[in-house]
Design a protein around this nucleic acid. Structure first.
Lengths: 353, 353
DNA sequence: CTGAAAGCGCTTACAG
DNA sequence: CTGAAAGCGCTTACAG
């Protein structure tokens, strides 16, 4: 947008009768300028309708005051809320946010990261689409673009900061709640793909989607309670409502259906809730259900949904703070912040009927 | 992020044994280069780990391939979904999106617009926080930053394109639906502030928030049906669930309460729905309710909520297309696209009990 | 406090 | 097809 005849610092300097260096200092708030010339320059600038060219400035200062945010889908309430947390914190500090939707596609994420890097963002917050491969993130850090991971940890990026929730603990609490109520056949709806057997045996913290970490939490909570895991109670869905609906229906049609179910995510929970409704089940008598995330609908439905409440906004805000901090301090030992999620018991859970 | 020792085009050129002009042409995909040198330059670039400096490029080409988006709150599902529409269309065309939350504050919007303008965005999509004053938008257009208005029309910006829905028609349909069912005492929950009397008499299309336009639609639909407007049935709320809850409760406690209600927005609708539930009213027998926007919860609750369905994603996508188009074509007569909203009747509306 | 000059890293006419 | 030179609009040492 270098429009025809947009005034430059040269024009302002001439109008004010000073050098461009002085004009720049007066307008940019750096260096020393006398009160008088500052005013004279300001007047000249406003007379000419001068706007600083941020591109030129950034090229010299090495800072664009711009941050990149990479998520799979802003229209997902989880990311929308986290994003609000990010922007509130970073705008406050004078940074703008460049947003990219990856659609959960690792290649799209790589490309977007490259573009942001060419645009010289000062740092990046990313919810890695494919946590198992963080090579592109590691490369960004090498090029001295600070990276903060949000909601999930990629493997192969030892030096990237992160903000996540304690998923294992959160799920343990949820399963514990159901166990206390007396449930023994507890199902789970999850988008975790891949090899369940390996997931059960493994114990790495990185490289997994939250759904997978939560699924593992489910396995270990049951195991610790001495309840053998029944894989027919694991309903794997794609990441959408419809698929969760189908997976739930399948579980409910088992000859020995679960008396309670846990969903590893809010999108899946809404599909599951609907499926239970359509099946004609009364919650919590016929089925206890636990979802994730405290969205408005969870208290609007009857019964109100028992959920694992994530501090979603705070997750984003914290990621923003960490990135600002990292930009200020420069490279260093990675800091991993883990926020607590907590169970909010409502009316969709009760002892098995 | 001009990190120490990041290779520049000069380094690549030297490594490849060509001039920087040639290196630039080979890497940037402009001008003519022979196959052989193109390869040689590409090799040199990858050997050095070269990344184009987009800042320098933009300064010369006059284009940043970046668009600004200004909304009040990304965590509002309406804006989140519209934003997804915007980014899908514009990323596809090679543009990135700079996002700013104004919190509905006109000053914040002005500041954010100024910053984006300094960062030399190629254009801007904005849902004006204060439609009654579009002076800053007009100024942006003068500086040749194309502006597309989303969801609402500011006054004083004759040359800005826009994408909105036909609110008057949408509301007329909703009210018509209730009238057909036999309702005569129809309330409304709205965030429209200001002077209701003036709103009723006026007929300008610009300068109003969607809520206000919808409220006016409600007035005229009733008037056309020969039903006198009862201002005690107009529940004015701030823009949040709690306030909508209170406003709804107030209407329901009238000695002659409405038999049906319309909410001018999804946030307000969720507050109203809850209020009706808490009041112990059975919908639709005791009260018919209509909301806005087809959000997941509206089909999860019982009864399912009758709504005015906006093409939210498409609203954003269309705004994106229009902005791209405007950037390509340059200034010209403003184009105003109006999308249709449609009534989706579900179970929250029925004849008065 | 102020200015002349150099330079950030590219692309663009202009020649060849 | 390729190169030398100018220039985009700023900020930054370096002198004064």
């Amino acid at each position: 947008m270098t429009e025809r005849g947009a005034p430059s610092l040269i024009d302002v300097a001439r109008e004010a009768g000073v050098s461009t260096a002085t004009a720049g200092r007066a307008l940019g708030g750096y260096g020393k300028v006398s009160q008088r010339t500052r005013e004279r320059v300001a007047d000249a600038a406003s007379r000419l309708g001068y706007r600083t060219n941020g591109l030129a400035r950034s090229m010299i200062t090495g800072s664009t005051q711009t941050l990149g945010v990479l998520v799979s889908d802003v229209s997902n309430p989880f990311f929308a809320t986290a994003l609000r947390g990010i922007t509130d914190v970073t705008q406050q500090a004078g940074f703008e946010v460049l947003l990219s939707n990856t659609g959960g596609d690792a290649d799209a994420e790589r490309r977007a990261l490259a573009v942001m890097s060419e645009k010289r963002v000062d740092g990046v917050i990313v919810a890695p689409a494919l946590p198992s491969d963080g090579a592109h993130l590691a490369r960004a850090i090498e090029l001295s673009v600070p990276v903060v991971q949000l909601d999930r940890l990629a493997s192969g990026v030892p030096s990237a900061d992160s903000v996540t929730i304690d998923n294992e603990h959160a799920v343990a609490e949820a399963v514990g709640h159901l166990l206390e109520l007396g449930h023994r056949r507890i199902g789970v709806i999850t988008e975790a793909d891949g090899d369940i057997a390996r997931l059960r045996s493994g114990n790495r913290k990185r490289g997994l989607l939250p759904s997978a970490v939560r699924l593992r939490g489910y396995f270990s909570a049951l195991t610790e309670a001495g309840i053998p895991v029944d894989e027919s109670l694991v309903g794997v869905a794609r990441y959408d409502r419809e698929s969760a609906y189908d997976a739930t229906t399948r579980l409910l049609e088992l000859t020995e259906p679960p008396t309670a179910m846990l969903c590893t995510d809010n999108v899946l929970a809404s599909g599951a809730y609907r499926a239970a409704q359509d099946k004609g089940l009364r919650m919590p008598d016929d089925l206890s259900l636990i979802g994730f995330d405290d969205e408005p609908w969870t208290t609007l439905v009857r019964p109100g949904l028992t959920i694992v409440e994530q501090p979603t906004y705070e997750l984003g805000a914290q990621a923003g703070r960490q990135l600002l901090d990292r930009i200020e301090r420069g490279p260093g030992r990675a800091r991993h912040v883990q926020l607590k999620a907590k169970l909010v018991a409502r009316d969709s859970t009760a002892p098995p009927g």
